[in-house]
Every structure is written in structure tokens, then in C-alpha cells.
């Protein structure tokens, strides 16, 4: 009796392992953090891009307007790609675009804006990248749609036509 149970037990175990590996193959091995919706944006302090004045996050995101927070840098190549979509959005009246200049040199960043135009209503500096971490970002570019101090949508990587469309629909 005992001799029969053991092989059967082993066969079942192996079958389960096979099944799990098989299922596991279909999952991506690259980790991306789960995107939680409706998180409150943290409180942070930063310097304004042009004036170098200190501003607090609650001075940036006021009331129940829509804000698009975009993390960018002049050295980031995908940022150039998504720039035209930001320009497009900046023509909309009911959304304010906030730029977060990530680990950039001021001169390069200014050149970047001079060359490609400035879609941002306001830009603040994130020289050491810690504000990005407060926001739960981990790369450039990343974009957050914010309303009522809450993140309603988070986009990792550059914007594209579809995402632009989605954002426009959300803020209608």
C-alpha cells in the first residue's frame, strides 16, 4: 500500500510543477509595479524652473482642476518623441501641464524647450530624483493625470496617439 502512495504522490507533484512552469512561461519576467488608482499625491517641496523660487506641491495642484504631471529631461530620447503630444494637450483649456525636470542640467533643459517649444504651464526641478520616487515613478518619461490631489492615471514611458486620446476623453 505504502509503495503505491508514494509514486502517485510524486506523479501529482511533478504534474503540478509542470503546470506551474507552463503557466509561468506566459507571465512576463519583467516587473512593473501595480498601478494603483486614486492615490493621494504626496506633499513635496521643489524649486521652480525659471525663477528658482521654492514652491510647495499644494501650491502647484490647486482645486479640482485637471493636471498633467510630466517627468522629463533633455537627455531622455523618448521625451523628444512625446513632446508633440504634450504640445497638443497644452492647447486644451481645461488641463494644466506641469513639468518635472528630472536630473537635468539647466542649460540643456532650456535649450530643449527653446528648440521644441514649451508645453508646460509650470516646471519644477527634481535634481536628485527623489521627488520622482515620492510619486512612485522609476524612469523618464512618466506622466500622471491628477485631479483633486489624486492620481487618476499613470503612464509609464512616452505618450502616444492612443494615450493622448484617452487623456482627452478622461478630461472631457
Amino acid at each position: 500500500m505504502k509503495t503505491k502512495i508514494f509514486p502517485i504522490f510524486l506523479i501529482i507533484t511533478f504534474s503540478i510543477i509542470f503546470f506551474v512552469f507552463y503557466k509561468g512561461l506566459q507571465n512576463s519576467s519583467i516587473y512593473t509595479p501595480e498601478i494603483k488608482s486614486k492615490i493621494k499625491i504626496p506633499n513635496f517641496q521643489a524649486k521652480e524652473f525659471f525663477s528658482k523660487d521654492k514652491i510647495n506641491s499644494d501650491q502647484i495642484f490647486i482645486g479640482n482642476e485637471y493636471y498633467l504631471l510630466n517627468i522629463w529631461a533633455s537627455w531622455c530620447i523618448p521625451c523628444k518623441e512625446e513632446h508633440k503630444y504634450l504640445m497638443d494637450l497644452s492647447k486644451k483649456e481645461n488641463i494644466k501641464i506641469i513639468g518635472q525636470n528630472y536630473k537635468d542640467s539647466l542649460d540643456n533643459a532650456k535649450n530643449f524647450l527653446a528648440k521644441l517649444d514649451n508645453p508646460y504651464d509650470l516646471i519644477f526641478l527634481d535634481n536628485d530624483g527623489t521627488i520622482a520616487i515620492e510619486l512612485g515613478a522609476y524612469g523618464v518619461p512618466e506622466t500622471f493625470l491628477i485631479k483633486n490631489n489624486q492620481i487618476i492615471k499613470k503612464i509609464i514611458g512616452p505618450l502616444n496617439q492612443n494615450l493622448l486620446f484617452e487623456i482627452k476623453k478622461l478630461i472631457q
Binding site: 519583467i30 516587473y31 509595479p33 528630472y102 536630473k103 536628485d128 530624483g129 527623489t130 520622482a132 520616487i133 522609476y138 524612469g139 523618464v140
Partner: peptide, 22 residues
């Protein structure tokens, strides 16, 4: 999160450097 096989300590990615500062 950028070079996913490494620890923040070992990595020199922008993300890891920011985490170190944080």
C-alpha cells in the same frame, strides 16, 4: 527596478542613485 537583477546598492542607474539619496 531598472536593472532588475541588481540591488540598488550595486546598480548605477538613475533610479538606484535616487533611491540611495532618498
Amino acid at each position: 527596478l531598472i536593472c532588475q537583477g541588481q540591488s540598488v546598492y550595486d546598480s548605477d542607474s538613475e533610479f538606484a542613485n535616487s533611491i540611495k539619496i532618498l
